[in-house]
Write a protein that binds this DNA or RNA. Sequence first.
DNA 1: GAGTGGTCTAGACCACTTA
DNA 2: AAGTGGTCTAGACCACTCT
Lengths: 254, 254
Amino acid sequence: MPKPEVDPTVQLELSVDRSSPVPLYFQLSQQLEAAIEHGTLTPGSLLGNEIELAARLGLSRPTVRQAIQSLVDKGLLVRRRGVGTQVVHSQVKRPLELSSLYDDLEAAGQRPATRVLVNRLVPASAEVAAALGVAEDSDVHRVERLRLAHGEPMAYLCNFLPPGLIDLDTDQLETTGLYRMMRSAGITLHSARQSIGARAATKEEAERLAEEAGAPLLTMQRVTFDDTGRAVEFGTHTYRPTRYSFEFQLLVRT
Amino acid sequence: MPKPEVDPTVQLELSVDRSSPVPLYFQLSQQLEAAIEHGTLTPGSLLGNEIELAARLGLSRPTVRQAIQSLVDKGLLVRRRGVGTQVVHSQVKRPLELSSLYDDLEAAGQRPATRVLVNRLVPASAEVAAALGVAEDSDVHRVERLRLAHGEPMAYLCNFLPPGLIDLDTDQLETTGLYRMMRSAGITLHSARQSIGARAATKEEAERLAEEAGAPLLTMQRVTFDDTGRAVEFGTHTYRPTRYSFEFQLLVRT
DNA sequence: GAGTGGTCTAGACCACTTA
DNA sequence: AAGTGGTCTAGACCACTCT
């Protein structure tokens, strides 16, 4: 009876296309990630050593390392000196993302709807001006939206954006998410500072979300920065906690 | 009048110690990070090119790149092809962390106090068993704690841990955080899956936190995994939203 | 065209783990 | 002692941005 292969990657038909413009390390990391996602590489399985893997693919060791490292950074693999590289045991795989409510809902198959309540220029309040780094009372966009799922209100979103950044077409706001609009306008999102809390609904808030006054609401405030460090969005959101909660995975910084 | 230096790193007396066991790239990244933290490298300033920097320090380019890349991953630097490497403009610098309430409070100078309400072995409920990956009705540790700041209750923490992992000394639980105890027991935390929501307080919850029944509460559930993929902790926490909110910075995955 | 970062190579030596 | 990942070198060519 033949001894089973120790290195599961040998059965994985890995290959790279050197004529492709896609970087070699990226081609490799995508194939490995797909194999993990797909269950071909099972949790706990030990990848073969880097040098042998590099030789088999006709790549240099640093290139293979770069591919593996990117998956380690995503939390999919764990490396141990003297031991090897293993697929992480835990079932949780989704990377941490700057979540977009619209995308979240769409991914969950909830077919979200958006109703734009307000879309106009207003003078910046002190709080908005500080968050966006603009002068107080200068013009900023104010967008108020109600997000619905299955016809039921789920969240009330109030956002402020500096002027001249993107074209805030109301129709487009109703059919896609704000982040997606910013990305297609060539804005590279970089980081966001978030604060998540809770409070009792005021009468107006309750009415908007079809709740009762005093009902608990989940709140989120966020300032988003692009890769030049500009604040590109300040948002104050309220969610119905019976309909929505924040789910995410954190990687421990090392 | 002499033209000012374009590359601010030349005035930075960077140096590496080749006799140190600390990796060279790490020595460099720490010096750069300190300079950014300290304000010596101001937001928006352009670092000199990698090759020149490598030559000045007597390092190879890949080593310098590794140092710079680690700061890019932390969100402190931004690289642009054809342009250069810049210190990020935004004022936010704190990295995303797996937050420990105890550490958060201590960092905020709130001198937290902990009262251990329960610390014993209990049979695992279905929910706990699923979260920790143990058999239903098998023994698990149950720890209930009340976290206070300035003498006021701030959060009620209920945690479950698999048996035999760490010594859950009650005195130690009152003077430090659970995460810190796990780390000193040699457990390497790796990732956590969190869910943050809100709900109205039940009568018992309200009493524990000195709130009224029906008051809004901020809730957090978390499963934490170590680097072998074992679930090492499952927690169900409730926070007084007037006293606590979750603040964190996200980096956009690219 | 000049300068930047992005990618890649083919080696090397070391530290750690396991047996 | 053998095998692993961790670090490091000294080059190379390419793609992109700016002037």
